[in-house]
Computed example of a mutant assay.
Amino acid sequence: MALNMPAARAFPLRFLGGQGALIALVLLVGFAALRYDGFLSAYNISSFFRYNAMFMLIAIGMTFVIVTGGIDLSVGSVAAMASVMAALASPFGPLAGLLAGVVAGALVGLLNGIVITRLRVEPFIATLGTFLGARGVAQLASNQSAVSVDANGTFVRIGQGDWWGVPIPVVLTLAVFLVGFVLLRSTRFGRSALSIGDNEDAARLMGFNVGRVKLLVYVISGTLAGLAGVILASQFGAGQPTEGVGWELTAIAGVVVGGTLLTGGRGSLFNTVVGVTLLGLIFNVLNFENGKGIISIDVFWQNVIRGVFLLVVVVVQSSASRRRV
């Protein structure tokens, strides 16, 4: 029994070593709670998660793509396009608006998957093409201006309403997270995705259908980007053809900060949500700091901070990976 004690003591250390983003999140929340009045208010917490639900959805989809060793640069444009489609369909009811946005996103994801798996185009190039194409469709469908949603309908409740006191976008995101968590951790599909990212040839020899799994992860990514677009339209009361710029980078940053390897083969949806929350919280804290009037950090400097933070995380992740090898 005593021989197992070192291993038992080492387990918490290994766990904490892989939870840097969670530790940073807890420390940041503690710091902000002590420094800023109203930081832990129901209004701030609700507003924070209602807005960041869109990024969490996109990052969850991105996690599935990245664990296979792929990338999806189209998600920001897809969200913008889906917001326009949802707004155009909103006069027919909230379900029509929801389906229009989600189906539009799923179709782009399907196109990405087909181009990558059947035509064997590199994911970077394929999704760069749909990044441009989806943005163009959004601008054409909206005549290059915001498309107002049906003011007399209930579509706006998707983004602005609450269920049992919890913002509806948060409820939707939690449901997606739970399904995705089980899918990635406890199904053959999830094991296939991780195996493909770790070693595609070995995954094929193990009997996994590599092409089908890759196709499905891009459909998942597109679908969740479409759902994020629906929330965008309903939250702001209009389809936004010019929105979503840089969302793909925010999603990738959240995934990487959460510890998912950009090379694939390892990933966690829980850590992705932690990473997105941490990134969002940094800017929430900066807004509170600006409100104190001591310093003033505009949006451009916030982008610099985001870029530096991501670069540091990638460098640390790369160093850790080399040490494991």
Score class of each variant (00 low, 15 high):
residue 70 G to F: 03
residue 178 L to E: 04
residue 95 L to E: 05
residue 50 R to T: 12
residue 176 V to H: 03
residue 160 Q to W: 02
residue 215 L to N: 01
residue 297 I to F: 10
residue 244 G to R: 12
residue 17 G to P: 05
residue 153 G to E: 04
residue 172 L to C: 01
residue 320 A to Y: 02
residue 1 M to D: 15
residue 197 G to W: 13
residue 313 V to T: 08
residue 55 F to W: 05
residue 304 V to A: 14
residue 53 A to R: 00
residue 62 M to V: 00
residue 114 I to L: 14
residue 195 S to G: 08
residue 95 L to Q: 10
residue 247 W to Q: 15
residue 124 F to W: 09
residue 84 V to C: 04
residue 274 V to Y: 14
residue 252 I to E: 02
residue 61 G to P: 06
residue 203 A to G: 04
residue 175 A to Q: 02
residue 165 G to L: 04
residue 141 A to P: 00
residue 203 A to P: 02
residue 269 L to M: 13
residue 43 Y to A: 14
residue 134 A to C: 12
residue 171 V to G: 00
residue 46 S to H: 11
residue 44 N to M: 14
residue 274 V to W: 05
residue 236 F to N: 14
residue 258 G to L: 07
residue 14 R to F: 06
residue 234 S to D: 02
residue 149 V to Q: 07
residue 154 T to Q: 12
residue 202 A to Y: 13
residue 68 T to C: 10
residue 5 M to N: 08
residue 177 F to K: 14
residue 87 A to N: 06
residue 110 L to G: 09
residue 85 M to Y: 07
residue 194 L to A: 05
residue 282 I to V: 15
residue 311 L to P: 00
residue 311 L to H: 01
residue 187 T to D: 11
residue 9 R to F: 15
residue 287 N to E: 13
residue 106 A to T: 07
residue 285 V to K: 05
residue 153 G to M: 06
residue 127 T to N: 04
residue 31 F to C: 05
residue 242 T to A: 15
residue 220 I to S: 06
residue 19 Q to F: 05
residue 25 L to M: 07
residue 255 V to R: 14
residue 171 V to R: 00
residue 175 A to H: 08
residue 289 E to K: 13
residue 264 G to P: 09
residue 2 A to Q: 13
residue 91 P to G: 00
residue 113 G to I: 04
residue 84 V to Q: 06
residue 34 L to W: 10
residue 17 G to W: 04
residue 303 N to A: 06
residue 318 S to G: 12
residue 97 G to I: 06
residue 214 K to D: 05
residue 300 F to D: 08
residue 89 A to S: 05
residue 110 L to P: 03
residue 288 F to W: 01
residue 21 A to T: 01
residue 202 A to K: 14
residue 101 G to D: 05
residue 311 L to Y: 05
residue 13 L to T: 11
residue 131 F to I: 07
residue 310 L to T: 08
residue 50 R to I: 02
residue 168 I to D: 09
residue 127 T to Q: 01
residue 243 E to V: 08
residue 77 S to Q: 08
residue 86 A to C: 07
residue 60 I to L: 13
residue 288 F to H: 14
residue 252 I to Y: 03
residue 293 G to W: 07
residue 152 N to M: 10
residue 315 V to Q: 12
residue 212 R to N: 13
residue 201 D to L: 15
residue 137 V to E: 11
residue 62 M to P: 07
residue 33 A to W: 10
residue 142 S to D: 05
residue 120 R to P: 10
residue 308 V to S: 12
residue 185 R to S: 14
residue 3 L to C: 01
residue 89 A to N: 00
residue 143 N to P: 01
residue 321 S to N: 03
residue 248 E to K: 12
residue 20 G to D: 03
residue 53 A to S: 11
residue 100 A to L: 09
residue 271 N to T: 07
residue 159 G to F: 06
residue 209 N to E: 14
residue 58 I to W: 10
residue 249 L to C: 02
residue 272 T to A: 03
residue 309 F to A: 11
residue 198 D to K: 13
residue 209 N to W: 07
residue 286 L to F: 03
residue 17 G to Y: 03
residue 214 K to C: 06
